[in-house]
Simulated scan of single mutants.
Amino acid sequence: MSLHLTLTRRAGALTAGAVLLALAGCGTHSDKRADQALGTQGAVKPPARPADVSGLPGMPPVLDPKDVYAADRPNQLSPVVKDFPSRVYVPNTSSNTVSVIDPKTYKVIETIPVGAQPQHVVPSWDLKTLWVNNDKGNTLTPIDPRTGKAGKPVDVHDPYNLYFTPDGKYAIVMASLDRELVFRDPHTMKRVKTEPVTCYGVNHADFSMDGRYFIVSCEFSGELLKVDTEKMEVVGQQKLPFTGAMPQDVKISPDGKTFYIADMMAHGVWVLDGEKFTKPTLLPTGKGCHGLYVSRDSKVMYVSNRGEGTISVFDFAQGKVAKKWKLPGGGSPDMGGVSADGKVLWLSGRYNSEVYAIDTSSGKQLARIPVGSGPHGLAVYPQPGRYSLGHTGVFR
């Protein structure tokens, strides 16, 4: 993410009644959104009784109060995406293109021209669209993941990163240089509310299990924000206790009790109690700690250490780094995602114009694929899950 300064950013076999009531019971949600969320239930069988989590009104019910990633099991694709071809979409920040990789052959099969400085490829909440964040082009380019074709760009200012509220009601543009969180219509991207922030470099986030708040990293001022989802307001702010801190990716633990924030200058992840929002502690992982990705069984989290060409494997049960994999010949592993079957970790090589495919059982490099210049927030798609919270693919 520091390159932002230099490169300038969803039923037949299911018990639909209970789900539909949970989705349509909130007056803030349209029938269309409720239908979309219901459709995403098809991939994962809900528990015999409602989960004991009082979620954000309109949010699809939590499947398992002990695991926020319960809908992300291997190959459990939503009916919405089950027929989409499996691809890896790589935004090349300096080339103003998106490289499309066939994960079966490890080859680039298409290069799509987009706007200036594409930073991330983001799956929409309803899973139907991929949005390319053209940061300096001040546009979002939609890609139809069924056909792989790009549509007409939508004007959006400073779209460094993009998220969606768990109820599917709003898209949230992380306007990093504008110092704003901009809540927009998730389909038209029309501005609904702007929340100015006093920190600098808002870029990554993740939501609490109940969806009622989210934690945001501010890269350039080394700060964290806590934001009330319904009110769309910042309710907490703190400076990280490390001189020169540059927080990056944010990810919640499976049990929903802890947030982890990667920090490329502190060379580790900050461990934060999101509810209390008290001072976090630092867990060293490696130089240039950057991206955070949870395994399909929710047991470990892959941490890309961009500054040393390694991936740390953090064990949630042990609360520590259990192993570290080194890319042969080095590299600059940045952002990406896990394959639908959970067997391959895909990461962009930010400084090396390449993409890495890594075996999640052994850490072995399976492929090193040349792409455009400055590859950044690549999206592996489709992935398991009922709906998307944004970024390169945060599914629940």
Rank of each mutant, 00 (worst) to 15 (best):
M1N: 09
T8M: 04
G12W: 11
L14F: 12
L14I: 09
A16R: 05
G17P: 00
G17S: 09
L20I: 06
A24E: 14
G27Q: 15
S30E: 11
S30Q: 10
S30C: 09
Q36G: 05
G42S: 14
A43L: 14
A48N: 02
R49M: 12
L63C: 08
D67G: 08
V68S: 04
R73I: 04
P74Q: 05
P74C: 05
N75W: 02
N75A: 03
V80Y: 13
V81K: 11
F84N: 14
V90G: 00
P91A: 11
T93D: 11
T93P: 00
T97C: 05
V98S: 08
S99A: 08
I101T: 00
K107H: 12
I109V: 15
V114R: 06
A116L: 14
H120V: 04
V122Q: 13
S124D: 09
W131N: 04
V132K: 02
N133T: 15
K136R: 10
G137R: 12
L140R: 10
I143T: 01
T147L: 14
P153H: 11
P153Q: 13
V156C: 10
H157E: 14
N161I: 03
F164R: 14
L177Q: 13
E180Q: 15
T188L: 07
K190V: 13
K193F: 02
P196Q: 04
C199A: 09
V202H: 05
H204P: 01
D210T: 01
R212I: 01
V216T: 09
V216E: 02
S217R: 01
L224T: 00
L225E: 03
V227I: 14
D228M: 03
E230S: 15
E233D: 13
Q237W: 12
Q238Y: 06
L240M: 01
T243E: 15
G244A: 10
M246F: 03
Q248T: 08
K251Y: 12
G256D: 03
M265Y: 14
H267N: 15
G268D: 08
G274L: 13
T278G: 12
P284S: 09
G291W: 03
S295L: 03
S304L: 07
N305Y: 00
G309T: 07
T310W: 03
S312F: 11
F314T: 01
Q318D: 02
G319H: 07
K320D: 05
V321W: 01
W325S: 01
K326W: 05
L327F: 08
G331Q: 05
D334Y: 10
K343M: 03
K343Y: 04
L347K: 00
L347N: 00
S348I: 00
N352H: 07
G363N: 07
L366E: 11
Y381M: 08
Q383E: 07
Q383H: 01
R386D: 10
L389D: 05
V394K: 11
